[in-house]
Amino acid sequence: MSGFMIRRLIQALLVLLTMSALVFVAVFAIGDPLALLVDPQADRHDIARVRAGLGLDQPWWVQYARFVGAMAHGDLGRSFVHGEPAIRLVLERMPATLELAVAALLIALLVGVPLGLWVGLQPRSWSARLIDALSLLGFSLPTFWVGMMFIMLFGVWLGWLPTGGRGETTLWLGIPLSIGSLDGWRHLLLPALTLALFKCSLLLRLTASATREALRQDYVRFARARGLHPARIVFVHVFKNILIPIVTVSGLEFGSLIAFAVVTETVFAWPGMGKLLIEAIGQLDRPVVVAYLLVTVTLFVTINLVVDLLYALLDPRVRLRSRP
């Protein structure tokens, strides 16, 4: 167990270092941030002064060494554009993204799992066939287009919901959240639905196939033969079995929800860290891009670790050494 944890932690650190180097070098080649940021009238001396002030006159490895050194102290540099610590900017925007991702995951679970269970239990009914076909469609709809269609339908034609932005937020334990007010909910609904659609279809199909799998197991057949109540069979025996893949996949997909939030946030002007990333790429604000990627990588690595532990908790048969 501890050996496993140590190995996972080392691997996580390795991922972090590799990503930071890749990202750092990558952003370097995009363009010269100074041309964008220096005043139109500036002359050579101004440019040289700013370049030195930002540490951009050093060779890239010196800049990277400085960067890694500072990173060890929790400092990821100052945003060129905002003049504030980059990590703070990212963390400021994180609650909005996490709220969106959690809301989307909950929607996906609440809709996808029951429907998947139904499809798995009654595969031949027409309703199951319809749901199955719809899930395939949900699987195929590109996120950004769905967002646009929602905006057009609910925002423009029907006028029921706002077309973007975050709306009113209330503080919960010092963190601004949308779910404390009606206005916040109205703003959250469309982006969360958009983001949830793909995961919902995924979970639905996963649940359906896990259910079919469970129904074929001997103990379920046995329970049926013994004349146990069907509801009991489904909710105790089957559900217990499909829980493991659902938890694993939800955990892993949470990371991809955060990544896809980049798209949803852009469509709905949701002020999360994904929108910050797209803005930072546009402005060549390298410290912010790097900070975003490092924060998300850290987040993913943590999520993966947690999923591994949960997996072990739910299914004692699994040795933590290897994951199928």
């Binding site: 390795l14 991922v15 990558a26 952003v27 990371g255 896809f260 990627l293 990588v297």
Partner: peptide, 19 residues
């Protein structure tokens, strides 16, 4: 492969294209 799969494809492609 593990390292790569722990990082969503869209972010990787996004950074590469920005480059």
């Amino acid at each position: 492969v593990d390292i790569q799969l722990s990082f969503p494809a869209i972010l990787l492609a996004l950074v590469l294209l920005a480059l």
